[in-house]
Write a protein that binds this DNA or RNA. Structure first.
Length: 451
DNA sequence: TTCACTAAACAAG
DNA sequence: CTTGTTTAGTGAA
């Protein structure tokens, strides 16, 4: 087909039958028109492109503000005259590819795990709008050397990868247990070589928009563990989690985090931690929270806040009710898999916090939790388990909030440097892996903070 | 130079 | 085949 003709035809089509508010504007190439942004009224209308714009329209038109790819296609064919006769596989390849491309590429779209077995992910609009639409992972975006390295590798064909003499720096050894290998990015990047897996926790688009994944349904085919967006800078991609039932397939990882959390966290430090995002109807599902409770019960129960009256132990032990229908996981920082408790306690790296603004929010004091208790100030606790994988420089500045109780022995230096405690938290991964290969018995992951 | 877009390679389900 | 990610290349602004 003729790209030029199609493009112009699509431009013409884009303005038809969309909605009464639509104000067609002649434009040479990109279809640009004012788009109301209900979630961010203060923001000026942003220009957007045909496929991306239509995709946005499609999603916005959905009652639940989310659609699967197939539904987006369907919406296109149904709504846009130009696509009406282009729904067949022959003539749809181009524009569908373009739509997929835009969904993946633009930070204004976020992919949310669809708990339904065999279904593709939900695509939603990034509550933060996405920075000028583009996820900061494009080639035009400047990256530091580390990120460039990662990116370069990410697309290296397996053939070439196989020829690499040595494993990538920072890459952990291939896990003897399948679970580890599931810690990958978004589905699309799921099974890249282990180098990517451990050096780039790239979820999806942005670097930002990352994808945390979700706890797969019990009956689900395979637990998709965690999709974390790579982050040269804070990604906007966050992985959402649509009701994801409990997953029993991650005991190993969960166990690791749970154990360390128990050792390090005063239960009260989690109390009142709010995971609700102002731009979203429902509570955000913080990944860190799900580490503690795969079933996400406490979060669901308390508008995304931990009931402060409950101890962590109780939360862990409780058999939570099914999560709400629309639960979004908070945006996850790439560092998350390595330092879950850091985020869990609100110690989100500054880069992520500033750039994405998504994810874990300390509950505002003026909005008391369900229990009416004053939310505690988030504390920074060193990650219990820290792999030796390099931490992006941009992530090296964890947000440190003074603990509520400054007399506590957990008091941390204000200018705590991530690298500093990384060094102090090294552990013998070889031994651990070896133990894991032997069945994991007798493993004790209770790390002392001052190890 | 940047942006929007198409095409396509590639991987996984 | 579908879904998803990423890169390359092109043309307009």
């Amino acid at each position: 087909m003729d790209p030029g003709n199609e493009n112009s035809a699509r431009e013409a089509a884009a303005g038809i039958d969309l909605d009464p508010d639509f104000e067609p504007q002649s434009r040479p190439r990109c279809c640009t028109w004012p788009l109301p942004r209900p979630e961010f009224p203060s923001q000026p209308p942003q220009p957007f492109e045909v496929e991306a714009g239509l995709g946005q329209k499609a999603i916005e038109s959905a009652p639940e503000k989310r659609l699967t790819l197939a539904q987006i296609y369907e919406w296109m064919v149904r709504t846009v005259p130009y696509f009406k006769d282009k729904g067949d596989s022959n003539s749809s390849a181009g524009w569908k590819n373009s739509i997929r491309h835009n969904l993946s590429l633009h930070s204004k779209f976020v992919k949310v795990h669809n708990e339904a077995t065999g279904k593709s992910s939900w695509w939603m609009l990034n509550p933060h709008g996405g920075k000028s639409g583009k996820a900061p992972r494009r080639r035009a975006v400047s990256m530091d050397s580390h990120s460039k390295l990662l990116r370069g590798r990410s697309r290296m064909p397996k053939k070439k990868l196989a020829m690499l003499p040595v494993p990538p720096e920072g890459a952990l050894p291939m896990s003897p247990v399948g679970h580890f290998l599931k810690w990958s990015g978004s589905p699309g990047s799921r099974h890249r070589d282990e180098a990517d897996m451990w050096t780039t926790f790239r979820p999806r688009s942005s670097s930002n928009t990352s994808s945390i994944s979700t706890r797969p349904s019990p009956g689900g085919p395979e637990p998709e563990v965690l999709a974390v967006e790579e982050m040269p800078c804070a990604g906007s991609s966050y992985v959402g989690c649509v009701p994801a039932p409990r997953n029993e397939g991650l005991e190993l990882l969960d166990g690791l985090h749970l154990a360390s959390a128990r050792a390090l966290l005063p239960p009260s430090s989690l109390a009142g931690f709010c995971l609700q995002h102002p731009g979203l109807p429902g509570p955000l599902q913080g990944y860190g929270a799900s580490l503690f409770n795969p079933a996400e019960g406490p979060l669901a129960a308390g508008e995304g806040c931990f009931p402060s009256s409950q101890s962590l132990e109780a939360l862990l032990a409780s058999d939570p009710p099914p999560p709400p229908a629309d639960v979004l996981m908070g945006q996850v920082d790439p560092i998350l898999p390595q330092a879950p408790t850091l985020l869990l306690l609100g110690g989100m790296p500054s880069s992520s916090k500033l750039a994405t603004g998504v994810g874990l929010y300390p509950k505002p004091p003026e909005v008391p939790g369900p229990s009416g208790l004053v939310p505690p100030i988030p504390m920074l606790v060193p990650p219990p388990v820290m792999a030796e994988a390099p931490i992006p420089k941009a992530l090296g500045e964890p947000v440190v909030a003074p603990p509520a109780d400054t007399t506590s022995q957990d008091k941390m230096p204000q200018d705590l440097d991530l690298d500093m405690y990384l060094e102090n938290l090294e552990c013998d991964m070889d031994n651990i892996i070896s133990d894991l290969m032997n069945g994991g018995e007798g493993l004790d992951f209770n790390f002392e903070p001052d190890l």
